[in-house]
């Protein structure tokens, strides 16, 4: 995990701040476009005039219900969850000084899924509104195991493999639960396990909202620390911060962001892994204070867009967005893996 050699980041010729504004504007524009597509696409497909009319309270009641109660919350949830996933990934990659780190590879998603399965299949007496909290606790527990195991890891890939084997163990328990469940339970649970934004309403948005509102500012506050940790543990300690403690705080924030999304939407893979990569490529900087907002925007657009594609491309069939992102994101990740030879930001091999 700690890089062997420490290099001072090379000053970039172009100042990244100058790229921030266009990137942000583009991101906001893309968000607006995704919202427009999300509200209009599907059946029934209202015209632009009708959509505008809906805002001022005119139009068909049915269409209004569909747009306001089904499509709008879904797009909003997609944007929020995407941003949270991306921020979570950025924090995690920074804290571990490992560009290949992603929550899906670190046991968090598996822990959360296992908790959800236990509630569903064993019919644990958990009140409905407390279930997301239990799922959250499962995700945090899975992440904690990996973080503790990571102390023995050598190098970026080793750490991910530890995460993988913890995930495999949790999946083993999951399959035990599936074997115990009735066929009906399994079908229900399977839909959750794939990660999807379908059938989510304002209720889910409201449940994610507190985490979104509370944790994103925290993430931005932590960005400075992330920058220091990216230099490697030795330089971070030299600069006067407690590297171990900072890392745990940052990872905790990252885990909370992620687990709250898993509780509502199921595990959605690879957005949190790829969004920071894209953000770094766009603004040509590794400064977490700049990468964080840009990757949040990119993550939001990516997830909401992927969801709309999954919803509209094969209509009336629908692809769960989690499958979609894993297929595309995993392939991209493989390409990154085979191209680059190291995982660390500075130094490494």
């Amino acid at each position: 995990m700690p890089s062997e050699t420490v290099a001072i980041p090379k000053p970039k010729e172009r100042r990244p701040q100058r790229r921030l504004l266009p990137a942000a504007l583009l991101g906001l524009f893309a968000i607006a476009a995704v919202i427009a597509v999300g509200l209009k696409g599907g059946s029934p497909s209202p015209s632009w005039g009708e959509l505008a009319g809906l805002i001022s309270g005119e139009g068909d009641a049915l269409v209004r219900t569909i747009v306001a109660e089904i499509r709008l919350p879904r797009v909003v949830l997609g944007l929020m969850v995407g941003a949270m996933l991306a921020v979570s990934g950025t924090l995690m990659q920074g804290a571990m000084n490992n560009r290949l780190a992603g929550p899906e590879l670190l046991g968090l998603s598996a822990g959360a899924s296992l908790a959800a399965a236990a509630i569903l299949v064993l019919r644990l007496p958990v009140p409905y509104h407390l279930q997301p909290l239990c799922v959250l606790a499962g995700g945090l527990a899975g992440g904690a195991v990996v973080i503790m195991a990571a102390r023995i890891a050598r190098g970026a890939a080793g750490m991910l493999l530890i995460g993988m084997s913890v995930t495999a163990m949790l999946n083993g328990l999951l399959i035990v639960l599936i074997a115990m469940g009735t066929s009906n339970d399994v079908n229900l649970f399977y839909a959750y396990l794939l990660g999807s934004l379908a059938n989510r309403g304002w209720e889910q948005v409201l449940r994610v909202l507190p985490w979104f509102a509370a944790m994103l500012p925290v993430a931005f506050v932590l960005a400075k620390r992330v920058n220091l940790l990216q230099l490697g543990d030795d330089s971070a300690s030299g600069l006067g911060i407690n590297a171990g403690l900072s890392r745990i705080v940052i990872l905790l924030a990252s885990a909370m962001l992620l687990a709250s999304t898993v509780a509502e939407c199921g595990p959605i893979g690879y957005v949190s892994l790829l969004a920071p990569h894209l953000a770094r490529a766009v603004i040509l900087s590794q400064d977490a204070r700049l990468v964080l907002p840009v990757s949040a925007l990119i993550g939001a657009v990516l997830l909401a867009l992927a969801d709309q594609l999954g919803r509209l491309l094969f209509a009336p069939l629908e692809l769960p967005v989690g499958v979609w992102t894993t297929l595309v994101g995993g392939t991209v990740f493989l390409l990154i893996l085979s191209r680059k030879n190291g995982g660390a930001f500075h130094g490494g091999k």
């Binding site: 890939a157 493999l161 499958v323 297929l327 392939t331």
Partner: peptide, 25 residues
């Protein structure tokens, strides 16, 4: 890349996860 050791295993693990996503589909 001629990668070896944990790196190759990692590539395999990610490839497996992509294939599994295709399976779920």
């Amino acid at each position: 890349t001629g990668g070896s050791g944990p790196r190759l295993a990692l590539i395999g693990v990610v490839a497996a996860s992509v294939l599994q996503a295709a399976n779920s589909l």
